[in-house]
Simulated assay, not measured.
Amino acid sequence: MSNTKYILGHFADPDDMMHGIEKLQENNISIYDAYTPMPIHGIEAKLGYKRSRLPIAAFCFGITGTCAGFSMIYYMLVYDWPMNIGGKPAFAMPNFVPICFELTVLFAAFGMMACFMYANHFFPGRAPRVMDLRASNDRFVLAIDAKTNPYPEKIVDLLNEAGAVEILHNERKYVSYE
């Protein structure tokens, strides 16, 4: 087997790419990923992606911010330096609400950003993994793992049937002139 990692099928139209996904899945060929210049409704479900867990992480970070704000204010105003201001109690809940809210939003925002960057490998110093630069401009690209799919000729034929404009495999370019 060659050292080729991926077979790339380029499509000019998103409908052709969705048709290509269907054709490949009908033949039990696993798709590594799809790269598009714009969001396509329903592609996550078609590729079998699970729902993101980012909202759960945001909730956990938000609760952490609320607890941090509440415990910080309680420690400062009730335990460390209690003051009697105008006869009000030191533990007055309405006074805690704005700061707890702000820390909830702050922790949730920074936590979601950190989780997103970690999950997508966007940390500093890492080179971006780009299959083809045209995928961010005008092409819809399907990447098929060449190591797990043993019949590359079959994949090339299926991509051509689906309407691929160009197929890159083994340093060779298959161009469709239809």
Rank of each mutant, 00 (worst) to 15 (best):
D33V: 11
A34C: 15
A34Q: 13
Y35S: 14
Y35F: 14
T36P: 06
P39K: 14
I40L: 15
I40P: 15
G42F: 08
I43A: 06
K46W: 05
K46E: 12
L47I: 02
G48T: 03
Y49F: 13
Y49M: 05
K50Q: 11
R51W: 02
S52K: 05
S52L: 05
R53G: 00
L54E: 01
L54C: 01
L54V: 01
P55V: 00
P55M: 00
I56V: 04
I56R: 03
A58P: 00
A58K: 00
F59P: 00
F59G: 05
C60A: 13
F61C: 04
T64E: 00
T64G: 00
G65H: 03
T66I: 12
C67E: 10
S71N: 07
M72T: 15
M72F: 15
M72L: 15
I73P: 07
I73Y: 14
Y74G: 02
Y75I: 05
M76K: 13
Y79F: 14
P82D: 02
P82E: 03
M83S: 12
N84T: 05
N84I: 04
I85K: 09
I85F: 04
P89Y: 10
P89N: 05
F91I: 04
N95F: 11
F96V: 02
V97F: 08
P98W: 03
I99S: 05
I99L: 13
C100Q: 04
C100L: 08
F101M: 08
F101G: 05
E102A: 03
E102V: 03
E102H: 03
E102R: 02
L103T: 01
L106T: 01
F107K: 00
F107L: 04
F110Q: 03
G111I: 01
G111D: 06
M112W: 00
M113G: 12
M113Q: 07
A114Q: 02
F116D: 01
F116A: 08
M117I: 09
Y118F: 12
A119F: 13
N120Q: 10
P124I: 07
G125V: 08
A127P: 08
A127G: 10
A127I: 11
P128E: 11
P128L: 09
R129A: 14
V130R: 07
M131I: 15
M131D: 15
D132Y: 10
D132V: 05
L133M: 13
L133G: 14
R134G: 04
A135P: 10
S136H: 14
S136L: 13
S136R: 14
N137E: 14
D138T: 11
D138H: 15
L142R: 08
D145R: 10
D145Q: 09
K147L: 12
T148N: 14
T148Q: 15
K154Y: 09
K154S: 07
I155Q: 10
V156N: 10
L158W: 11
L158E: 12
L158D: 08
N160K: 13
N160P: 07
N160D: 12
A162R: 08
G163S: 07
G163F: 09
G163P: 08
A164T: 06
A164K: 13
